[in-house]
Nucleic acid binder design. Structure first.
Lengths: 206, 206
DNA sequence: AGGACGAAGTTAGTAACACTAACTTGTGAT
DNA sequence: ATCACAAGTTAGTGTTACTAACTTCGTCCT
């Protein structure tokens, strides 16, 4: 019409910004029911379009899942950085806070987390997924490097960062998969993180 | 034709011991192509029966997957115990060997491992799956308890065992999901385990 | 021996899904 | 205005999980 208001630049072509609508609907469906129960058909019903519509915007189901994974990494990066910046850059407490944020994200976004890690190896081939994950990890290395320098820790920051990541990731996985619940119901994961992070942050033993 | 040979005792009712045949075929298919690409129909084709046949033996697809998971835990338990008994019960080296066996199992049975942990929460409801997993873990606690007593480590063996499990599980997950490869291609996981296990086996810091 | 019975197969059919092909409709540039 | 094409549609294919109703064959009872 008249160029009166360009509120949304070019949000809609035909019926709406279907691409974004479908991605968001798919994210919500995966978050609620898990990727293994996700169907494009459901997303279409949510968006109110026919089941053939997605194929104007995405190659296939896997491309949609890949976009969901990217969103997940994005969110996780933000939360991690927010945590460490709030608590203290390059400090033990800050690094511990990053770990806690990782676990919290995993718990609060269980099903997306499961999709992000290991569910479908084929998703790693989706463009950008790997880079997004690397960006997320590189922030851990940064923090560890600062810590090591400040505290005179001998040992490669990279190696130590991998150790921390490994532990935090293991805790997240076992927690959301109910494996802790089956084996050690009383476990306090936060306490475990606080206890273990300083152990892992030390260099090789004398 | 003639009743010349009764080679297998009573291996077959009608056409064969279909239940076992299907479970084995399904295990092999999952091991090769992953659970997300597994179809009962494929297993039927392998076994040479119609696609309706499985339902005389199993409630549904999930029951078959549950049986595969149980087999996986069984195998993992055996390998862990074999490793620790070979290297040294209740020793640092023995416990490290258990961890290595865990990771090795994960690598060599990637797709079954993924099924065992987290892929389908619904599988935890299959009878026996949780018990099988607990049996596996309890062996780790045993070893840690012996080690702690012998070496005068203060701290709860259970807590320490959980820490070890967490780390080893995280390493397995990140390794088989190619996340290490993306972020730290040169990482030597065995070396990391050897370096980190003693750290985790110590009690709370002074 | 000879049925009866039931376990373990079969074929045939349903509903749902991913994806494709071929058609239609609306939009923006000219 | 019209034209081209992006973005929808309907209709159709092939595959799957699972069900229902039928068949076959071994076992046990007499």
């Amino acid at each position: 019409m008249t160029s009166g208001d360009a509120v949304k630049p070019k949000a809609k072509y035909h019926h709406g910004d279907l691409r974004e609508t479908l991605v968001q609907a798919s994210y919500d469906l995966v978050a609620e029911h898990g990727a293994e129960n996700f169907t494009l058909a459901d997303a279409c019903r949510l968006a109110g379009v026919s089941t053939a519509a997605p194929y104007k915007h995405f190659r296939d189901r896997d491309e949609v899942l890949g976009l969901i994974v990217k969103r997940g990494f994005d969110e996780m990066s933000s939360l991690s950085m927010a945590a460490v910046e709030k608590v203290g850059v390059g400090t033990l407490a800050g690094i511990t806070a990053m770990g806690k944020a990782y676990v919290r994200f995993a718990v609060e976004n269980q099903r997306v987390f499961r999709l992000m890690f290991g569910q479908h190896p084929v998703l790693k081939k989706e463009v950008g997924v790997v880079d997004e994950g690397m960006g997320c990890f590189s922030k851990v290395i940064e923090q560890v490097a600062i810590y090591c320098e400040r505290n005179g820790v001998r040992g490669d920051p990279m190696t130590i960062a991998v150790r921390l990541w490994t532990f935090v990731h293991g805790a997240s996985s076992l927690l959301i998969d109910q494996d802790y619940a089956a084996v050690a119901p009383d476990l306090d994961v936060e306490a475990m993180l606080e206890e273990t992070t300083p152990l892992l942050l030390s260099g090789p033993l004398p």
